[in-house]
Design a protein around this nucleic acid. Structure first.
Lengths: 193, 193, 193, 193
DNA sequence: TATGAATGAGCCTTCATTCAT
DNA sequence: GATGAATGAAGGCTCATTCAT
């Protein structure tokens, strides 16, 4: 099916985009380099996006959406906060092991002032965090003073930042194992109470 | 005195650099735009730096150095961990109020893969964190499982991230007050134990 | 056909390059001036060459290759040294009449320290000159003491230099005719014996 | 004496100019690099010349003037053509051995379309060549068909070109000795008759 | 007289984007 | 739909030149 072919192509383009942006930065990842790496014509991308900026924004949207869906799903299935954090961090660590490019990509673009997470997604994140706080207050796993930023910071940002400190060998260490993962879980759970 | 004029000019260039990088990203902050905003000739920057990359690296080095000096000074003056965190976060919040561009700049560049904090500065940060852990273990303000990344994350990264979430109006809020500051202090202190 | 258009364009660029380099020197012939004169976009050249230097080197390579091919062909067809010199100089004079820019270009770049004739072409020239000497010794048209430099100097360099002295009106004369050509032939033949 | 100091400085600037132009080309020899190498202020040169072009033209004028004076002196002292050629070529070979930069400089700039030898000097060269021809005709050392270009080419240009072919290792050889020098003398003498 | 800080025009080059095929 | 040749604006950077000191 023609449709199928297309999606394969666009998938290749997206992967190439992530890889190149992570390794060379936004400016260093030229559209033609992305196309070349994806084995696609230079102009191909413009059939789906209005431009490079649009393309990258969509990439971010997808990756963030993936995390949001995870979180959302976890919250709606009766898990405890600790369980949620355990599973989510497990997911993030898996992502880092299997597709380190993705975790780097999230890390870089979430901290950029040129690529904000969309209003709609921010709203979703807010709703999720509010729900989590409510649930945590009920189960006594989250103390009163915890805010939206604390929840978001501890469940999503902190694990991502930790992994990138390792990927950057910030303190000289470049790998991680299940001990690290378990430790981070405990750290985050404890931070919220 | 001619000398005096120089320093004013370079200061203007640096300020313009920070502002533009924060608002337009590294690639979007063209040398000529920086020069224009600083009211300086386009070639001026190159009398002091080997290039744009060099210039921005120095900017980052200075801002990070400022934080390191603060931390270092606090650790060597017999403050408790809580005191240190209180003062440091106070410092960071002041910076955010007085020169929000600076805190944005740190936020953006500390999370970039193209601008690593220099090896030398990373080393210093490591030494400081190690010292802090030792001291915290003694005074029982830091629990055993705390690592370098935890200390660094809670004392430096988390406050910066919090402020930028506000500056970006991530959850709809764009300001902060002393209550927030006190809360962050407590959060960080508690997270480490 | 699209292909056809290309070649015309690149041809125009090359011509413009030769003209401007001859008249303004390498440094004075800016890529944008070349593009403008060729009625081509500024970036066009970079689709075929890695840079200006690469472009000019290719120009030189082509022009020199043309001469080498001529020489090679003449040597392999049983002509006497006098005949070879006569034909070659005829060729050079024709080139000077029809495309004086080309002869100027050769003159300028062959005497530059920034654009050496490629190793490969120098090798070919050497082989050709050696062959010529052997043949000349056999036919008694070249005396024993003649060296590679002498042969090369008299058959290629001297005619080119003569023509450029005229083109520059070095001694006040700016044209030449068949008498000059015949005289140069005799001069060169006689110089070698 | 102040005057004396000046001349030393300017001499250094000129030397630096020759060296840098020869090694990096006209465009590659920046005024500031020349000044730096001469240990002189960047603006110094402009107290004596209207600009870089003017400066280099003067350099060429001086070097060419040196040759002209030599030639002129030789012609006015009753030497035979062979003696003149012998001495002149000896001079040129000495220059190449002692200050190869100078011979490269002459080679490069004499073949440039941007730096013509001055009208006045060309006139002098013409007069000298005419005188030489007259004398050569008398002593039967120059045959009838020899022209101004031939004389100039054989006495001045050919030796310079030969030496530069060696300096460029055009045919793989990079040095020369007295045998080469003697051979060139004979070659030139013979070429003129 | 000599300096060298400062300028800014202009260079080479890249690359996002368009559009005829 | 898909291509990739072509564009040209814009970028980083250099450097000849000026001029206040």
């Amino acid at each position: 099916m023609a449709r199928n072919i297309d999606e394969t192509k666009m998938e290749r383009v997206k992967e190439a985009g992530v890889t190149l942006i992570v390794n060379k930065g936004y400016g260093g990842a030229s559209v033609s380099a992305i196309a070349r790496q994806a084995n696609v014509a230079e102009g191909y991308l413009y059939r789906f996006y209005n431009g490079k900026q649009d393309f990258v924004a969509d990439l971010l949207h997808t990756k963030v959406g993936f995390l949001i869906d995870k979180l959302d799903h976890l919250l709606n299935n009766g898990y405890s906060i600790r369980e949620i954090i355990t599973i989510l961090i497990g997911e993030i660590f898996s992502m880092a092991s299997e597709r380190p490019e993705d975790i780097k990509f999230l890390y870089v673009l979430m901290h950029d002032y040129n690529f904000q997470i969309s209003h709609e997604q921010r709203k979703k994140i807010k709703v999720i965090c509010e729900k989590a706080i409510r649930k945590g207050l009920e189960t006594d796993e989250i103390r009163e003073s915890i805010t939206l930023e604390d929840i978001y910071g501890m469940t999503v940002l902190y694990p991502i930042i930790f992994l990138n400190l390792r990927l950057k060998e910030f303190f000289g260490m470049s790998y991680w194992d299940h001990t690290d993962q378990a430790r981070i879980v405990n750290f985050c759970v404890h931070a919220l109470k």
